[in-house]
Design a protein around this nucleic acid. Structure first.
Lengths: 66, 66
DNA sequence: CCTATAAGTAAAGTAAGCTTTACCTATAGT
DNA sequence: ACTATAGGTAAAGCTTACTTTACTTATAGG
């Protein structure tokens, strides 16, 4: 599972810590997701979607889908 | 997190076992998700989305969103 | 050179997702 | 009444998501 978090963050000039606070997880969790260490839970994916006002499918990409 | 799996299944006349097989999880997992015992992982949500050809946000609903 | 800030990473622990086995209940058909 | 099929549920165990603490590296500004 790939994602666009780093870019979306950059567009807003947010740090990993800023984003972590915004969706209420630890900074390490954001780092791990950006580095593809693991996938976010579905509830967390919804939080990102709401925060960035984007559909989940436009921020997270299932490898199998292509 | 609520979901429309039961309805989507009914529309296709599929059993929980059928759906489980289609997305490659156990029947108990489908049952638990339908009964809101837990949320699916994001990868599993993507599988449902692909299977039913629907955006994730049209099958799963974040309670906080309203 | 020193300091501050951002990012990367690792270890240990808890919590949530998911599996397997197994049993129980409900409904429908014979 | 018996059988088959679908759904509900529970326990034990494994894997993955996430936390906390803590150390490291990179960059930029004084």
């Amino acid at each position: 599972m790939k994602n666009r978090l780093k870019v979306l963050r950059a567009e807003r000039d947010w740090t990993q810590a800023d984003l972590a606070e915004a969706v209420d997880v630890s900074r390490q969790t954001i780092n791990a997701i950006e580095k593809d260490k693991f996938d976010p839970s579905l509830p967390l994916a919804f939080k990102f979607a709401r925060l960035f006002n984007l559909p989940i499918e436009e921020m997270f990409f299932d490898e199998d889908d292509r």
